[in-house]
């Protein structure tokens, strides 16, 4: 495990995240809520920061947060809309046109958060589901409802190239 960022930074990142979720979930800013939320966040942060964060210095770079915001907005509007429209058309069309295949999709990122982001983005768009993943050879096996290409890198162009570009900028 790398020592970059130090232990305190890691605790701060996890505790900040937990505290934010607590405050949004309760929806109140009374003194009791803040004290309970703060102490819970510190306990969770101390206990789990070694497990979930390796390099906390990445969390303090503004550029990554801007990309994260931009990617979230673009993903939730453009990509999801296109994929939903496609699958809904297929379900409602009388002939039920499908052309499914399980294709290999190679990826090149190293960070575990980036891999998870790519895999979750692929699975969350209707029409593509990650079936299995090999972290040694760096390939995902994706079930695709309309296989426009069966070659590895051609399929990657259609499925995950954009996701990977942003995941590298956010977490890589």
């Amino acid at each position: 495990m790398s020592k970059e960022g130090g232990g305190l930074g890691r605790v701060f990142v996890v505790a900040g995240f937990v505290f934010m979720i607590y405050v949004v979930f309760t929806g109140a800013l009374t003194l009791v809520d803040l004290i309970v939320g703060f102490s819970t966040a510190i306990v969770v942060g101390v206990l789990s920061s070694d497990l979930v964060v390796k390099n906390s210095s990445k969390a303090f770079e503004l550029r990554r947060w801007v990309y994260l915001l931009f990617y979230t907005l673009k993903y939730l509007t453009v990509y999801e809309f296109k994929a939903h429209l496609d699958v809904v058309k297929r379900i409602l069309s009388p002939k039920l046109p499908v052309n499914p295949a399980i294709v290999r999709v190679p990826y090149e990122v190293d960070d575990e958060y980036a891999v998870t982001t790519i895999a979750n983005s692929i699975t969350n768009t209707p029409g593509t589901v990650v079936v299995d993943i090999d972290v040694v050879r760096k390939v995902m096996y994706v079930h695709w409802i309309d296989a426009k290409a069966v070659e590895d890198f051609k399929a990657r162009e259609y499925i995950s190239e954009d996701f990977e570009k942003y995941a590298t900028k956010i977490f890589g």
């Binding site: 999801e80 699958v87 379900i91 399980i102 969350n124 768009t125 209707p126 029409g127 589901v129």
Partner: peptide
């Protein structure tokens, strides 16, 4: 109901979960 394969039904499931 309309898709007859397990993996194809997963895609319909995603429409239900996200949309």
């Amino acid at each position: 109901i309309r898709f007859k394969d397990f993996y194809l039904r997963l895609h319909a499931l995603t429409v239900g979960v996200i949309g």
